[in-house]
Amino acid sequence: MTDQKQAADFNEDEKKIIEDMITGDPEDMTIFGVSRRQFLKQLAVITGGFAAAQYIGPDELFAAPSVLAPGTIPINSIENGVNASFNVNGAPVALEVDSRMTLLDSLREKLQLTGTKKGCDHGQCGACTVIIDGNRVLSCLTLTACCQGKNVTTIEGLAKNNQLHPMQTAFIKHDGFQCGYCTPGQICSAVALMDEAKKGEASYLTENIREKPVSVQLSDDEIRERMSGNICRCGAYPNIIAAIKEVHSGKEAAQNWQFA
């Protein structure tokens, strides 16, 4: 990141956020991925403190991680209740839900993990993409009941060890979003794509499909094809491609605006 700012001193808002944070008892690993305190520090470093200053209170940045165990969630006349225990961002979760409840709605309505977005609820947009057991999937077409024993990673769980995931950093640098609504899905999708490319998985555009799968360096069109399951109505696609290319190739990707 060339225009990365120096770590700024905390302003009053940030200090207040931090105070609120550490009066609690921040566990190191929560379903939110990293400790709140570490995350906050990182937040100041990565974007020079910009974001910490944005329209957020502590509640919004890290909605209270109600530690979730069966019975502690308010259950409103559940019909056909199903129990499901699984991991979300490394933390165990046990839910009793209506059999109809999708993973997407469980994340958003029960676990307050609202980073995963609902764009269509029918598998047509990719906004709800999460990673289950290493694979990118759509949480809107996944029943919570089917998540028994699985490992779910959401956008909240990508940052690790005080660092944003490189894909998150690249999205910031390349402005890989505008409204930000498709972004969590795009990033989860892109993170999983890096793995697929390493495993040499093919796409419809792969010319030599019969060859043995080996780690592949994807062309721009290959990345486009493989990211086509994530719709961005704001039209950040070229920037998304730049961000993914940079992470995929390890080389800086250029941005192409100019003044006349």
């Binding site: 919004e60 909240e156 930000g180 609504y181």
Partner: peptide, 24 residues
């Protein structure tokens, strides 16, 4: 005029930016 990163970028790439339906 400077091409600085969005000030709300971090919130958007971490899922922390909250949209209307998320204020339960």
């Amino acid at each position: 005029g400077k091409p600085i990163n969005r000030v709300d970028a971090l919130l958007k790439v971490t899922g922390a930016a909250k949209y209307a339906a998320e204020f339960n």
